[in-house]
Simulated assay, not measured.
Amino acid sequence: MNLKSLLLACASAVALLVPAASVLAQDYPAKPVKLVSPYAPGGSTGVVARLLAKKFGDQTGGSMIVENKPGAASNIGSDMVAKSPPDGYTLLMGTSSLAINPTLYKSMSFDPLKDLAPVTALISSPNVLAVDASLPIRSVKELIDYARANPGKLNYGSSGNGATNHMAMEMLKTMAGVQLTHVPFKGGGEALAALLGGQIQVMFNPASTLQQHHNSGRIRMLAVTSEKRMEGLALPAVSETLPGFESSVWFALFAPAGTPAPIIQKLSAETNKALADKESLALLKEHGMLPLGGTPEQLRALLLKDTARWAPIVKASGAKVD
Rank of each mutant, 00 (worst) to 15 (best):
A20W: 04
F185T: 05
T307S: 06
I123P: 01
S44T: 13
A121T: 02
A316M: 03
V224E: 14
A207P: 01
P184N: 07
V66K: 05
T181H: 06
P118H: 02
L122Q: 04
A252I: 11
A13Q: 07
Q212M: 14
P86R: 06
P118M: 04
I65Q: 12
L7D: 07
N150L: 11
L284F: 14
N205R: 08
K34R: 14
R309M: 07
M203E: 13
S159W: 05
P126C: 11
G288D: 02
A72W: 00
V81Q: 09
S125K: 05
M167S: 10
H214K: 04
Q212D: 12
N2G: 15
Y146M: 04
A168T: 10
A207T: 07
I137L: 02
L303H: 01
K305Y: 00
H213C: 08
V249G: 01
L192Q: 13
H182D: 15
L129S: 01
K106N: 04
A82G: 08
Y89Q: 09
P70G: 06
L196G: 03
Q211N: 08
G187A: 03
A149K: 13
S139P: 13
L284E: 05
L16Q: 11
N150S: 02
A13M: 10
P70V: 01
A319S: 09
M108L: 14
Q179V: 07
K34V: 14
Q59C: 00
S12D: 08
Q212R: 15
S74Q: 09
D27A: 14
K273G: 02
A21G: 13
N155V: 12
K31Y: 01
N272L: 04
P85K: 14
V23L: 12
K141W: 01
S208C: 00
P256W: 02
P184W: 01
P262H: 05
M230A: 15
H214L: 06
D145N: 11
G189D: 09
I137T: 04
K34L: 11
